[in-house]
Every structure is written in C-alpha cells, then in structure tokens.
Design a protein around this nucleic acid. Sequence first.
RNA 1: GGUUUCGUGGCCGAGUGGCUAGGCAGCGGUCUGCAAAACCGUCCACAGCGGUUCGACUCCGCUCGAAACCUCCA
Length: 507
Amino acid sequence: MENQLFIHNTLTRKKELFEPLNPPFAGMYVCGPTVYGDPHLGHARPAITFDVVFRYLLHLGYKVRYVRNITDVGHLVADLDEGEDKIAVKARVEQLEPMEIAQYYADRYFIFMDALNVKRPSIEPRASGHIIEQILMVSQILEAGFAYEVNGSVYFDVEKYSKAYSYGKLSGRVLDDLMTNTRELEGQEEKRNPADFALWKKAQPEHIMRWPSPWSDGFPGWHLECSAMSTKYLGDRFDIHGGGMDLLFPHHESEIAQCQAALGHESVKYWLHNNMITINGQKMGKSLGNFITLDEFFTGKHASLHQPYSAMTIRFFILQAHYRSTVDFSNEALQAAEKGLKKLMAGFETLEKMGPQPRTLPKNKELHPRSLPKKGGEDDPRIIELKQNCYAAMNDDFNSPIVIANLFEAVRIINSVNDKKETISNEDLILLKEIFDVFLFGILGITNDKGGDRSQVVDGLMKLILAIRQKSRETKDWGTSDQIREALQILHITVKDGKDGSIWNIE
RNA sequence: GGUUUCGUGGCCGAGUGGCUAGGCAGCGGUCUGCAAAACCGUCCACAGCGGUUCGACUCCGCUCGAAACCUCCA
C-alpha cells in the first residue's frame, strides 16, 4: 500500500505531500496550554487532533519526536505587553507561589488528557525552564539587527523586518494595515511601531516572576518560548508546527519572524491548524467565559449539560468532524456521538465473539444480495476496500470522519454476518479485526472505557446468573427471567437475548 | 474597516463537475415470550441570484447571513 500522506499547510493553503526533512525522523511541535485554569473542551481539540497526527505518523513508521510545551510564564493578562502575568495574578489571588499554580493546573491537564487517551508527547518543556534559551534568542535577534532595547525591554522591529522578509505571510496580513489598525493602548510609547512585539520585558517592582538578563530583571515575551524550545529540541529546521487557529496571528506569525531573524531562515516546513469548538455558534474560550471544563463534562455538573459524557464520547465527538472545521457543541450532538460510539464498540465485541471460524466450503447460493460472490479462497473485496478507504482518508489530511464512516460500514457487515444473513471467511474476520485494531484503537485512539468494574469474579457471577436465567427461559418461566433482567438493570448491567444465548455489559 | 474561512436534509457532519457519505432522530417491515439489539427498505439537502458548462451542491461573480483573527485565548 502506497502511503502518500497529504497534509494541509496553512502557509500555502494547500494540501501538500508530507516529506519529512530527515526521514525516517519526523519532528512536530504543538502549542500547549497556559496552565492557569482547569482544562476545558477547547483544550481537548488540539490535543486530540495532534494526538491522531502523532499516532498516524508513528503508524506509518516514522520515528517521531513530538514536543508540546507547557506555558507557565509570559502570558500577560491584558493590554498587549503591558499588564500582569496570568499565573502571577492567580497566585496573588489564591495566596500561592506562582509555580504552585502552574504545577496544580499542569497536573490537572495531564489527568484529563490521559482520560482522553491522548498519548504523552516525547518532550513537554516548560517556558520557565528555558529562560536561558530565550535570552539567547533575544541576543541573536538583537545582533541580527531586528530588535531594539528601550529601558530594559527589548522589542522586535517589525517594520525593519518587513523590509527584508514578509511579516504576515502566514496570516495573510499586510503591514500597512497592521500599523493603521493596531489599537492605541497604554504603555506602547516605548515601541517604535504599534505592530512591534516584546521579546523581553523589564519587570515592574511588584512583578513576582522575574529573571536576570543582560537588559533587566524581567521576563520573556509571549511568542518567544515556542521559538526557543522548538529550536532546542527539534533543531533549527523541523517538519510540523501545530496549534489552534486562534494562534495564527500574532503568535505563529511572530514565531516565524523570530526564527527567521535569529537563525537566518525559517524553521517550520508544514503549519497545521485545528479549528475551534463553538457553543451556540461562538468560540468556546476562556475570555468569553462560555467554556465548559472537561471535569464538568465527565461529571455532568454544568447547567448546559443534560447528562455526563464520558471521555471517549468527547474524543469520538471531536473526531467525527474534520480538524479544520469548526465543531458545534450541543447535547444532541454529544448524545448522537455517544450512541454512535456505542454501536461501533458493540460491533467490535460481536466481531470478537465470532472469533476465527472454520471456512465455509460450499458457497451458499442463497447469500444476501449485497454479499458479493467470492472466488475460491479470495478475501472479500468489500473488506479490502474498507481498509484501503481508511488509509486513503487518513492520507487525505487526516480525514477522521471518513475513517469512522468506513468503520460503521464494517459494523454493518459484522452484524449482518452475525445475523446469518451473509457469510465471510476466516481471513476476512481477521482482516476486520485488524482494521479495528489499527484504525479505531491505534490511530483514532478510542478505548473501551465502559465496564470498569469488570473482574473475573463479576464475569463468573454473570455466567452463573445468566445460566440460571436461561433455565427459567427454557421452561417459559418469564417471571423469573424478567426479574433477573430487571434486577441487573438496576445495577446498570444490560442483558440482551440473542439467538445464541444472552449477552451482557455494564453501562 | 482589514485578513482568513464558512453557509449541506429534523440535529451533527463528510465529499464530489454527471455515480449511496456516515452517525443520531423519524417512518414501514423482518426477527423476537416480552424488551433491547440487529437486519432490510424508506422520507428529508446542498443560503439566494446570475454566469461558465452537454451537465454544478461541486468552478466564477454578486447578494444575504455566520464565525475566527486584527488584545490574552486551544
């Protein structure tokens, strides 16, 4: 199978063939969270999006180094580069060390990402641990002549940079517009141009988070950490840089400028951006105050939620949309995702129960019409096609909705075979199982998160109980059999009677 | 105002110049002690107006509407 992976590059706005700079290695950097609040649904989108990218690249055999930062310093509360550090503000309010806040929320982030089955990246560097690298980069930019120092602060000279390179190439912005349209804000008088951004800020006396530098005791500007850390861990040229679309400007635009100025060339080959999650048509975001935390989703404790939703429901919900589309949150949509996922998992369980079957030798002439005739010993072309479709979908800019649609088609075939409406070969069963293992579990990262209480004891008890119930059914003692089923339902154990006995699962 | 992007059936959400997306919900049927599940069939669509074309939901233009970014945000 040829795996020609095409990915959408924001820089060119086209799908491009993915050719890593140094195969079989692939480097990927993704902007991680600023740890000053509980992770919400919006944080889940990029984490899951790039988790799937990570998993697929690994599946294709690349040796991937995936770097996702933790921002624990440098983001200012408001008013551009003037103002207070978010984490410091939170620390003062809660009477804690800033690092205590960062640690607490970083831990919370990891807990919830683990629940969503997001693989841990190869490296998760923190901005506060890379002050030296950031200072070095400021020096490089100063030496290159694309920055200037004023009163202990250092600013990037956008106007001068624009004469040599293109500031705005990623976001499609024009410098003239930026200069005329940037708002006049307090504390901008140090800058030569409103479009300039801070590389290093001198700390005011009350500012808690501060580090010594050649220019002042201060802290790094908020675009710098990603440039410094990506360079440190992935080199001055690497393959993929990802993040939310809301970071396109000014964050990623400024990263490009910083690297170009400091290193003399751009460092990123492919820029990937995931779209936003909306609620009532608006972006779910911290600043709008319309976000729902992952904790609230899992517990159902939020006014907008009709019920709790499991981590896998959230993951599946996000993967049902393409990563470059907005996805609108609603209870209806989440419930549909929950049911769809349940159907998919039930289909897989059915497949496992069917297990390897002896090949049916004489081909039944009365097969279901949709079951295509098979030549001797050949695999079912539909199933081969499913597998090819899944690869084609992933290779087309990670089109997870199409992969899922094909998995539902696989479930249809499985159920149809289970109902004895058609027959497939042992090899086909194995191939179907492989498709689920590779795509649903391996690449999309779905896990079976139900039935957490299952143990050997429970399995044994259930076997006994269902055997007793089966006896009552055989004697048409419906009272007893219904009583058992209802009692089990109260314990959230659902029993379904099929042709070949009863099956059960814990809700 | 500028930049970027989008408007698909009851809801969510793919995709393509002519051929079924898929899920959830609905309707009819099969199966079944009942229930559930499953299977089969089925209804509902491409914002509006022009243009290009043998043919457009798909390309182009305009209109209307929506969002993101231009200030921290995933």
